[in-house]
């Protein structure tokens, strides 16, 4: 943009000073955006770093195999909370996965566009509901005596699992739908031309083709609810020992972290850090390995544009933003 000779000026010529000012401003904003990106990533590093630093020392055999020691005594473990979390999440998945996956199958394979967008809107609303509200709903149905015909009458593992399932359903519905839509229509038409029954097409061809993506979505939803605390506060309640049945209050890892974190005992704080490290390793481990695992296969195909999201990226983004990322595509 500089003039060939500085002595001659012509209309529309830009002064050197203005040019430098504009370039400088551009460089400054570029720099600021870099700083923003660094700041956004920093909390992840800080949280992870401190958890390893503070929690790794307390991880030992006792921690994974023993019940908590009586208050004031040092030692003990949180095996009951780990097992409790596993039970809660498994139960929640048993309820949430069929509803989410089959619901999504209906939307892509059978339903008209009107009903589909209606259900999608419903799922988006549900995805935006704060998790604590799910706790209230599960409480009203299952804990409150005479609240409903299904009421257990007191805090129970079932209530906790249902609350988590409520969170999983819309999440799985959205990720599954996202993946099912990627199955080429030619598969469906080819199968129809062979005279294969519609339900077999849905279950054996469409769902099977998308199985990897569906599984990714399900596991990410599991990772998400495994860390939920709020809906368990007054449904599963927590337990300092083993529960004898699903109708009793049950311990969970996030609840245990919460209880320990706000307690006044140093040893409990130590255990809270260790428990948090275990939980975070599980959640991040699942996220990272799923991404890596699905990426592996994608990279075998010719890569058109590394900036374009893959199906796995879309699923991860959907879970990370609880369905919001899907809306803007």
């Amino acid at each position: 943009m500089s003039a060939p000779s500085a002595s001659k000026s012509y209309p529309g010529q830009v002064s050197e000073g203005l040019r430098r000012w504009r370039k400088g401003k551009s460089a400054l904003v570029t720099f600021l955006c870099c700083i923003c990106a660094v700041i956004v990533v920093t909390p992840l590093a800080l949280v992870f770093g401190y958890l390893v630093f503070k929690g790794a020392g307390s991880l030992n055999w006792d921690f994974f195999t023993k019940l908590p020691a009586p208050v004031g005594e040092v030692g003990g473990g949180i095996v009951h909370a780990i097992v409790g979390s596993m039970i809660l999440v498994t139960l929640a998945a048993l309820i949430g996965v069929p509803v989410g996956v089959l619901g999504a199958l209906y939307l892509t394979e059978y339903s008209g566009p009107r009903f589909a967008s209606c259900v999608r809107l419903g799922a988006d609303i549900l995805n935006g509901v704060p998790s604590i509200v799910w706790g209230i709903v599960a409480y009203a149905i299952l804990v409150l005596p005479h609240g409903s015909p299904f009421s257990v009458g007191h805090f129970s593992a079932i209530a906790g699992a249902i609350a988590l399932a409520f969170i999983m359903i819309p999440l799985i519905l959205r990720t599954t739908e996202e993946v099912l839509l990627l199955v080429p229509n030619g598969y469906r038409e080819a199968a129809l031309a062979l005279g294969i029954a519609r339900w077999k097409i849905s279950a054996r061809i469409v769902a099977k083709t998308a199985l990897r993506g569906i599984l990714t979505g399900v596991l990410l939803a599991v990772a998400r609810v495994a860390g939920e605390t709020a809906p368990l506060l007054f449904t599963a309640l927590g337990n300092s020992g083993w529960s004898q049945s699903l109708k009793e209050p049950i311990a969970a890892l996030p609840l245990q972290i919460f209880t320990y974190a706000i307690s006044p005992y140093d040893d409990w704080h130590r255990q809270a850090w260790a428990a948090a490290l275990v939980l975070l390793l599980f959640v991040l481990g699942l996220n990272v390995s799923l991404r890596f695992f699905t990426r592996e296969r994608v990279s075998a195909q010719p890569k058109a544009d590394s900036d374009k999201p893959t199906a796995a990226d879309a699923v991860v983004a959907t879970v990370a933003t609880r369905g919001a990322a899907v809306q803007v595509q």
């Binding site: 990533v41 958890l51 974190a261 704080h269 850090w273 948090a276 939980l279 991040l284 990272v288 990370a320």
Partner: peptide, 26 residues
């Protein structure tokens, strides 16, 4: 681009209670 986008999504994956624990003590 992808790695940084991935890291921001991982930030979303941190359970709330863990962030709270970190916030209280650090």
């Amino acid at each position: 681009r992808q790695p940084i986008a991935f890291l921001t999504e991982m930030l979303a994956a941190i359970p709330s209670v863990i962030l709270g624990l970190w916030a209280i003590f650090i």
